[in-house]
Structures are given as structure tokens and as C-alpha cells.
Nucleic acid binder design. Structure first.
Lengths: 334, 334
DNA sequence: ATGAAAGCGCTAACAA
DNA sequence: TTGTTAGCGCTTTCAT
């Protein structure tokens, strides 16, 4: 065990209170004693015990990141990790500790209640996959600092942070317009896939504004996997009039799409422009390299961290929704 | 703030010590008082303050995962997250808290020293990217429970856990042999890439045993990117005699390799078998789906967790190296 | 400007 | 079987 505040006080010939004051930069300490204390600290190689400090202060200086983890999450959802990294950056900078906790959606409210109750953490960053009405109520009535990553799909008091997928769709469409596209098709995920739907929505809005048509048969909904993207692309190519641009709802679909175009001998981007969303995992590697509307998920983590810290400092602050903005990355496919 | 142990004691008409004993299942408590205490707890909705408990016990029940994080890590290294998930599973089960901490290699020793000193954590799981001689010495002399993820490339006292890449290479080669391959080529990463080198080593061992040749011109070293894989494959195809199987050192190389074969109109697996390592990110999605020698990285996290917990319990236990075994996943490409 | 002392909530000897 | 009491290492109030 290292030196404690007592040891420092003894060596410096002061009281522990004085040492504490020196550490915390109190103005009511003379330069002289401050120097003495600091010298003693150095000599003893003193490092204050964070846990004791937090305990005394009745604050944990800890944020818990709560999500449904499990085998495969790392590969299936690298974004979550990326967010985590961004979060860590902000928290570490302010000397906050980040703990990661896997929890099933059903147990989440109970877990957070207990953790908040026993002051294990000052705040929570919660992945949308584990939220519930019960949790909403808990967080709201107990005024527990939190931020949800992802837009809750029910009415709630949650404070949340999400991507503006509609805007992302708009950006994609605008870019294609600028490239001179006259007719655009959209191949998306399942009908109930909110993200895909919002992206389509944004695309439609812009196209309508510019009187570019996107007829019914140019909108396909399938699954977020390569094969489905392949099939949907083939279907679109069956139309007598072929579009000159394809918006793919995500990377997996885009991969199938590119394969289909390749098999048909259709040149990208000369004969067909292709654009998709999110800068991973294929967009940077596929040939041609795909233009994408990207979300800076690391930055989402940073934002989440900043918010939660603010919320802890000023609990009366209440901002319900935070949106992060997508940006366009132009590569070979457009 | 919720009820404290004092409140419970008062309500139950006992001392706090008794309450503590009830909580911790001491045998020396009568059924009667135990019931009284438990009833009081219930009534007050008492939840013990974990931080106070740990502080009093001088134990943190916390493991810190230390690695070099940062923007892009989530995408570049999903395995790290996967390991983290496995780790969390074991720790949570034993009521340990997992904290994640980004640290530059240079600051790692200092950070861990301080964290261990002030008992912020009972143990550390350290990614090999941040280890150093100084850290080795620290961990060794202070007997700090730890496990390094990845084989240290210098002589050390570290306890570490890694994949047996040599064995992985052997498995790949054996599988090809079983498929009747007569001549195998290897396309790998940079010459200094240890992982690639060990995999090659394993391949060579098995082939030699079975008198299958792998001539010099069938071993290529490039970079772990798609383009490089493409080029290396093309080079191999230039030989007058073509191999009937290709071992790719990793997924990125394999992706380029498959592209090259496709462009040359060579059928997989009929004319050329392809096998690679790690079940991500392309192997499951590429057409054809790739056979791979896979490492269960989630399980690596689990192993790491189990070890660190054991080490905390029994500090005199010393096992330096732990190896996890790869397994073969046969898909379309062989 | 400094120090004495009372916590923070719980544990763990040691007594009783 | 139960209670008393002294910590754990630091903060903070209130004297001085």
C-alpha cells in the first residue's frame, strides 16, 4: 500500500486537512505550506486514493455504459465499440471512470435502479436496445442522469442521441442530383426497418423538390444482407427503363448491389452511380470504393459523454433529443 | 439517498454489525434476528452501498481493461470488443466491475501503478499493444494480477494469452490435404507480420510432413489489404504450373484473392480452393463463402476473465502462457 | 491560514 | 449469538 494523506501530513508537519486543501487547490493556503506539502508528496511518491476520495465526496465519478452485449456483438456492432471509445475519451479527460455492463433488456431498469441507489455511478449511457417503459419511468422520477443512444420508438422522457437518418438520405440524393442523375432507385432493408425508412424518406424529399421521379418500382425493400441486395438490384435492372443511380440503405445491401452490377457488366460510376450509408465495413474496400453518407459514431460517443457530464453538473438541464449530423464522403462509385 | 445500514439496524433493533453479518451470511446469527433484519431491509428497501463496502473491505472488485483505443479502433479491431464482451460476462457473473480505459503505450505503466496503488482495481487485462519492459517489471515486482492479451514479443514475466497461429496454419493445411490438394500457395502479410509468419509456419510444417511442395514462388508476402491480395494472387497465377489451393493470411488478403480469381474466371472451389483465417469480416459474406480457421475471440475474453479472477484469489498461482485453440469452419471455398 | 474532528457506509476484530 | 468500536483514506465544517 502506498503512502496515505496521513503520511504526507506527518512528513510535512501539517494536518491532513491542510494536505487535502493543497491537493484541491484551496486559496486559503500559504505558498510556503503548500510547497512543504507538495515536497512531502513527492518524497513519499504519494498518490491520493481515488476510491476513498470519491467515497468521502459521495460521488462515484463513474459512468456506466449499459447495453446488450454477448457473443458476436463485437463483430455485428463495431459501432457500439466505436461509440464506447469516444465516450471513454471524454470521460477519462475529466477523470471519470467508464464501466461497461452487459444487461438483458428486461433486467436493465432493476440494474440501473440499484446502481443509482447505491451510488455506483453518477450517470448512465444506455443503448436503445435495452430501454423500456419501466426504465423511462425510473429515470424520470428519480432524475437519474442518462443518455440513450438511439431514438426510442415510443413516447418517453428519455434524453436520447441519434443520427439524423432523414438528413442522411437528403445528402445522398443531393449528391446524386449534383452528379446529374435523372432517375434514382432505392434498395432498402425490411419494411419495418426504421433506419432504412428514414433514409428513403430523406431521399424522396429531395428528389421531389427537384422533380426527379422515383417511381414505385424503383423502391425495393428486402433484407440487410448481401444476397438480398443482389436480388433487388437485379429486379430493378429488369425494368425497361434503367435508373442512373442506386441508393443502397446500407453496406451489406450495397455489396450485393455492386456484385449484381458487376455480373451484368454495368460500369460504376459511368453507367450507374452507387451510394450508400455508413463508412464500414465494405464501403472503403469494395471495388469501386463506395461513396457514402457517413456518421461519425466516435463523435456520437463524445457527444454522449459531454452531455452526461453536463447533466451531472446541472441536473435541471433538460434536452431531450440530440442529433448528430451525417457527412458526405465522395469516392469512386459516384 | 436510500436507507443505510444504520437505519436497518435501528429498525431491526440490532447493531450494524449484526446487519452486516446477516448480509454476509455469517453462521453466528440466529434465525430469529436474521429474519428481523431482513424484514427491516425489505421495509426500508435497503440496498447496501457497494462502494462503501468495497472501501471498507479494501477491495475494489474491479478489473480494468487497458488498451490503446481511439477513433477507428471499433472498426479496425472488432475483436478487441469481442474479447471485452467475453470478459464482461465472466466478471459480471462474479459481481466484478469491468472498467475500460484507453491509454497510450508510454503511459500505461504509470497508470497501472497508480491504479494498483490506490486499489482502484484488483486486476488488469492489458492489450499487448500497450506493454513495455517497464510495465513488465512493475507487474512482476509488485505482483499485480494481470493478463496480457497477445504474445509479448520480448522476454518477460508477463502472464499472457494468445492464439496459436501456428496450429491455425496446420489446421488449414491439413484441411486442404484432406480435400486432395497437391500443391498449395500462401499469400501473406508483411514479412515482419508475426501472425502471418506463424500461420505460414504451420502450413509449411504439415505440407512437409505429407511431402506436398510449396516452392518459393508459391509464397508471397505483401500487405494486409485487398489490393495487395489481388496482386499477389495474380503473381501466383502467372506461374506455368498453377497451385490448386491458396492459403490467405487474413480476410483482407482473401478478399483481394477472390476478386482476382473471379476476374480470371477461375472457379472456387472447383479449380482453386481458398482458405483463410478469422471468421470476419468478409469470410461469411464473400461469394463464395470462405472456409476459415477461426479463433473464438469471445472465448479468449472469457478465459482472460477466468484467469484474472483466479489470480486474485490465489496470487501464488503462476501460469505464464495460455493458448487458445483455433477451429476449422468449412464453407463453400474448399 | 491552519487544524481538530466529525463524518461517508460498511467491515471486522475483539469483547461480552 | 450479539454488540462495541476502531478503522478504510479522504473531505469538510467549524474553530482558532
Amino acid at each position: 500500500m502506498g503512502a496515505t494523506i496521513k503520511d504526507v501530513a506527518k512528513l510535512a508537519g501539517t494536518s491532513t486537512a491542510t494536505v487535502s486543501k493543497v491537493m484541491n487547490g484551496s486559496y486559503s493556503i500559504s505558498q510556503e505550506t503548500a510547497d512543504k506539502v507538495r515536497k512531502a508528496m513527492e518524497e513519499l511518491d504519494y498518490h491520493p486514493n481515488l476510491r476513498a476520495k470519491n467515497f468521502a465526496r459521495q460521488s462515484a465519478r463513474t459512468i456506466i455504459f449499459v447495453a446488450e452485449l454477448g457473443k458476436g456483438t463485437g463483430f455485428a456492432n463495431p459501432q457500439m465499440f466505436e461509440i464506447l471509445c469516444g465516450l471513454e475519451e471524454v470521460l477519462a479527460q475529466k477523470d471519470y471512470t467508464l464501466v461497461v455492463r452487459n444487461i438483458a433488456a428486461g433486467d436493465c431498469a432493476e440494474f440501473i435502479r440499484n446502481a443509482a441507489d447505491t451510488k455506483q455511478a453518477d450517470g448512465f449511457v444506455i443503448h436503445a436496445s435495452v430501454i423500456s417503459q419501466a426504465l423511462d419511468e425510473l429515470l424520470f422520477t428519480h432524475e437519474i442522469p442518462h443518455i440513450v443512444i438511439g431514438n426510442p420508438n415510443f413516447n418517453s422522457h428519455f434524453c436520447w442521441l441519434d443520427i439524423d437518418n432523414r438528413l442522411a438520405g437528403e445528402l445522398a440524393a443531393k449528391h446524386l442530383l449534383e452528379r446529374g442523375c435523372q432517375s434514382v432507385a432505392f434498395i432498402g432493408g425490411k419494411p419495418e426497418d426504421q433506419i432504412s425508412a428514414r433514409r428513403l424518406d430523406g431521399v424522396l424529399t429531395v428528389l421531389k423538390e427537384h422533380d426527379v421521379l422515383l417511381p414505385r418500382e424503383y423502391v425495393k425493400k428486402g433484407e440487410s444482407v448481401c444476397d438480398s441486395g443482389y436480388r433487388m438490384t437485379m429486379q430493378i435492372l429488369e425494368n425497361r427503363r434503367r435508373p442512373d443511380a442506386l441508393v443502397c440503405a446500407d453496406n451489406y445491401i450495397a455489396y450485393g448491389c455492386v456484385n449484381a452490377l458487376h455480373d451484368r457488366g454495368i460500369l460504376i460510376p459511368e453507367e450507374m452511380k452507387v451510394i450508400t450509408f455508413d463508412d464500414f465495413p465494405f464501403s472503403q474496400i469494395l471495388k469501386p470504393m463506395l461513396s457514402v453518407v457517413n456518421i461519425d459514431v466516435y463523435d456520437m460517443g463524445v457527444q454522449a459523454g459531454k452531455y452526461i457530464l453536463q447533466k451531472i453538473k446541472r441536473p435541471n438541464l433538460y434536452v431531450q433529443s440530440h442529433i448528430t449530423f451525417p457527412t458526405l464522403i465522395i469516392r469512386e462509385s459516384t
